[in-house]
């Protein structure tokens, strides 16, 4: 949308805003919900048509019941997994951004650190768990470390990439204005990196729960969502196995959606033609007639 030649022409002119919102909600919420419903229908269909035994695969209803009927037991475990995911994600994101910035600004460090970063991701994460438990014990810390270990990498790579592709003419323009380097960094280089940064965060978000579950399997002393599932599996309680898998998936999707929401909020210019009213304190066009 770079070629609006008619001054004042709004996007999608001629359609009422109510209708537009309805369509948008239908497209952005309705379609994903429909695809999930279809997935459950497919699951149900396969189990019924092929007469799959309950200990091999339960029906969706049984899996859901296995969760709801044991909710009081499961809820603290879910909270634990969420905590590991969120702490680990935040630690990984902060570390990732920090490393990306430092590497972009100090080329020597980039050459020095990059191989180590790649190496860190080549280590099988399971193999990492045992020494982490030895060092950090069975607390929440080793799980947070594993999540952060997984999350920081895509963030660093994307931030580094974004910072090295900032338009140098724009940086030069800031120099011509006489801007100090730190202001140029904060006002030009950082916002210019928003898109790759959020790409990295979204990739990190999808892997964060996986990291937490691996951490729980390898470094848990008894009460965790992953061990609950393992226990259910040993008891041939397949419905509970499927149920906990669904729970883990829901945590993962929710976290991903939260990051997407943060992106939508933080980068309004990617979706909007006009800035939100009052998006910045004091940003009132007081001498402009109210619309």
């Amino acid at each position: 949308m770079t070629d609006v030649t008619a001054p004042g022409a709004p996007r999608r002119a001629g359609r009422s805003s109510d209708e537009r919102v309805t369509r948008k909600v239908a497209r952005n919420v309705g379609v994903p919900v429909l695809s999930i419903v279809l997935l459950f229908a497919l699951w149900q269909g396969i189990v019924v048509v092929f007469h799959v035994a309950p200990y091999i695969a339960p029906r969706p209803r049984q899996a859901i019941l296995a969760v709801t009927q044991n909710w009081s037991t499961l809820w603290p475990l879910v909270l634990g997994t969420i905590r590991e995911t969120v702490y680990g994600f935040i630690a990984g994101a902060v570390l990732g951004v920090g490393l990306g910035v430092i590497m972009a600004k100090v080329p020597v460090l980039q050459r020095l650190v990059y191989p180590v970063l790649v190496l860190s991701q080549a280590v099988p994460i399971i193999a990492l768990a045992a020494p982490l438990v030895l060092i950090l014990g069975f607390s929440v810390t080793p799980k947070v470390v594993i999540v952060a270990w997984i999350v920081f990498f895509p963030v660093t790579v994307n931030v580094l990439d974004g910072l090295s592709h900032v338009d140098q003419d724009l940086v030069n323009l800031a120099r011509v204005y006489g801007a100090p380097r730190w202001r140029t960094f904060i006002q030009i280089e950082i916002p210019a990196t928003a898109t790759p940064l959020f790409s990295g965060l979204k990739i990190g978000a999808t892997y964060a729960v996986t990291g937490a579950i691996i951490g729980e399997l390898a470094a848990s002393d008894g009460s965790s969502l992953a061990l609950y599932q393992e226990h259910a599996n040993t008891n041939l309680n397949t419905a509970a196995v499927y149920g906990t898998t669904m729970l883990m998936t829901v945590i993962g999707i929710s976290w991903f959606l939260l990051v997407v929401g943060a992106e939508v909020f933080a980068t309004p210019w990617q979706r909007r033609t006009v800035a939100r009213r009052g998006w910045r304190r004091g940003d009132r066009l007081e001498d402009e007639p109210a619309h």
Binding site: M1, T2, V4, T5, P7, R11, T273, V274
Partner: peptide
């Protein structure tokens, strides 16, 4: 002549 576009993002403008 750009008074109406003060709150617009540049992506909404022509070259």
């Amino acid at each position: 002549g750009l008074g109406e576009f003060l709150r617009h993002y540049p992506s909404a403008l022509s070259g």
